[in-house]
Design a protein around this nucleic acid. Sequence first.
DNA 1: ACCTGAACACCGTTCAAGT
DNA 2: ACCTGAACACCGTTCAAGT
Lengths: 206, 206
Amino acid sequence: VADDPPGTQRRLVEAARALIEAGGVESLSMRKVAADVGVTPTSIYWHIGSREALLHAVLDAMIDDLPRLRVRGTTPVARVTSLARSMREHFAATTRAQQLAQELGRGAELTFPAQVALAREMTAAGLRGPDAAQAVRAVLYLVGGFIMIEDNYRHRQPGARTTQELWRSVHDESVAAELRSAMARPADTGAVFDYAVERLVTSLLP
Amino acid sequence: VADDPPGTQRRLVEAARALIEAGGVESLSMRKVAADVGVTPTSIYWHIGSREALLHAVLDAMIDDLPRLRVRGTTPVARVTSLARSMREHFAATTRAQQLAQELGRGAELTFPAQVALAREMTAAGLRGPDAAQAVRAVLYLVGGFIMIEDNYRHRQPGARTTQELWRSVHDESVAAELRSAMARPADTGAVFDYAVERLVTSLLP
DNA sequence: ACCTGAACACCGTTCAAGT
DNA sequence: ACCTGAACACCGTTCAAGT
């Protein structure tokens, strides 16, 4: 495991990772990576093999540095809720790795630790049988939804209209006026998250 | 609104749409679109302006053809649950449009009709005030989570391990053996969806 | 008004050739 | 074993030129 003197392969992966962390997967090109290391693009093919293989190597490195999930509290509801919050923060802090994993079809690997942590809490809460699996999956989906929608919002085009803006032009009487104006205001995502998770978890646990 | 005799612009958008519907956004190239219409790539720039403008035109056409959401049932819980199911089907049936909208940062436009439909049902169920907005958002997030995770699963790499497969190698005693083997079996996504939505909606409605 | 041809600055990848 | 140079088949886009 000693680093061989030239270590071109390691330097290539590091350069690729730096590019991805700075500008996402789409900003990586073989020619840029090569230039950053001071080598010809073609030599990457000798060391790594292909663009895809390079991306996999970068993802492996990122997975090694992933932060851990936190669980706090004493009651089952409090513990699962705190874990859900930690999952959300965890995702927000590792978007580049998530994007890369998604692109490489390796998303499952990154979600898995959260599944296990959730399953542990459900077991501790006394849930057994098929209901336990359904409870794990239900929480997983709810948290995933937050992550997706927040991500959607983050990656919107500068000019594109948000749903908040779209709500301003709704005058449909079948939606309460109060609700229409609430939807037109920015959501306190953290509060909605806590609210939704707590409601769901409370209804899932015995 | 009469179609002008040559109609090259219309034919370009149609060719682009066909390419995207067949192989996703990444399979579209200006040169292919041009070839399909029988014209030089450069002439697209005269008619449409850029690749991005072409994609926006295709998305506009797709939005015009979007199917409608269905709501069935008489009790509020049944109606919201059926709407949620319809949202999930709707998404699955329009993945190309969703992918394109996401890429163009116009995801909000496609989610919006579902928000309004949900808000209508919450109003009909008698929910008012800030709780109504939180309820709309909570259901939205849960459904979004299903969509994201199902999408994730669909786009996994042939070789990549699924979470089910990963569960087989977990022998952690803090997770009940029964739960471990349940997580290693394929999930009946439809059943989990109905279960989770019904639980959440029941706990949200008065 | 509509389209072409040539050109520019990029891609990922292969492969024979060098040391 | 490691790297280069030349080449191939692609990209999106610009712009002067044609009809």
